[in-house]
């Protein structure tokens, strides 16, 4: 095994722009022995993973290895897919989110999600933000304040404060994505899941979202799927590397967690050959 110093090209090293992840993690979510199936097809198997409070965790790995699948199972979005099934346990503040008597809708309110393509509703900017509080029946003193607060936290307020009544579809792609983040914040979640949130954005818009994530990290726990290793290296405290391998018997490829650690360790001192190959660009 090569020495840690040259495991990753220079530009991929964790930059230390953010605080180094504390050695002791205070887990807010724990994934234990999770398998996810689509019908008979097992998309990911045997995943064990903890997410630390107020940390940013990146899920990386080649396309099709089940990153989105795992992410969707963290807030029960998989329930909406016909035939999808989750086995194992996922705990949130120690409570199994798949437990009996748990309302999946409450899970989704507490664990928000931002998608690959910005998906603002064809409504006004204001109504996009107010939507979540309204449908969840949140009692708010002032909706106007809540809208302003959410947009401010998403670093969008100054850009849109004069056109709150205009359609959200008129915003640029990067603004739309920050609107979607503001929308997710509006229902006061603890965790925000992001599935390749910058995949459809240009580099400048991407940078703004990355800066925003650093700010949000103060108050929220973030799990981000990204195919962009530099991004993981730049923003994440911890990184989990997944890959897909042919499962026993049939030729189906099943995703599995290869290695999980602080971002610095994953990029500078990978313990697994597959991780090392992937981050040094020899694979995927």
């Amino acid at each position: 095994m090569s020495s840690s110093a040259d495991a990753a090209p220079m530009h991929l090293r964790a930059t230390g722009q953010h605080q180094v992840a504390p050695e002791v993690m205070r887990p807010i979510m724990e994934v234990e022995n999770v398998d996810v199936y689509y019908g008979d097809f097992r998309a990911v198997s045997e995943v064990n993973l903890d997410f630390g409070l107020n940390e940013i965790t990146a899920l990386i790995g080649p396309s099709g290895c089940g990153k989105s699948t795992i992410l969707r199972s963290l807030n029960r979005m998989n329930d909406l897919i016909e035939g999808a099934r989750v086995e194992g346990e996922i705990r949130f503040h120690g409570e199994n989110i798949y437990g009996k008597d748990v309302d999946p809708i409450e899970v989704r309110r507490r664990i928000g999600m931002v998608f690959q393509k910005p998906n603002p509703f064809p409504k006004s900017i204001y109504d996009n933000i107010a939507y979540g509080p309204r449908v969840t029946g949140m009692k708010v003193q002032s909706m106007d304040d809540l809208v302003e607060d959410s947009l401010t936290r998403a670093a969008l307020w100054d850009e849109v404060k004069d056109k709150l009544k205009q359609s959200a579809l008129g915003l640029s792609g990067g603004q739309q994505q920050r609107l979607c983040i503001a929308r997710a914040i509006s229902v006061r979640p603890d965790v925000i899941l992001m599935d390749e949130p910058c995949a459809s954005l240009d580099p400048i818009a991407t940078m703004r979202i990355e800066d925003l994530m650093q700010e949000l990290r103060e108050h929220y726990t973030i799990v981000i799927v990204t195919h962009n290793m530099q991004q993981a290296a730049r923003v994440a405290d911890r990184t989990a590397f997944f890959t897909a391998q042919p499962s026993e018997g049939n030729g189906d490829r099943t995703g599995l967690l290869v290695e999980y650690g602080t971002t610095a360790q994953i990029f500078e001192d990978p313990q697994d050959k597959r991780t090392e190959d992937y981050i040094s660009g020899r694979f995927g």
């Binding site: 979005m77 928000g112 999600m113 998906n119 509703f121 449908v135 969840t136 929308r183 997710a184």
Partner: peptide, 23 residues
Amino acid sequence: SLRQGSAALGANRMQTSLRVVFP
């Protein structure tokens, strides 16, 4: 994606149908 966005905010199907899909 609009239905997913709505569900991820804690809307039920009726709310998604009436407040997102219908308009």
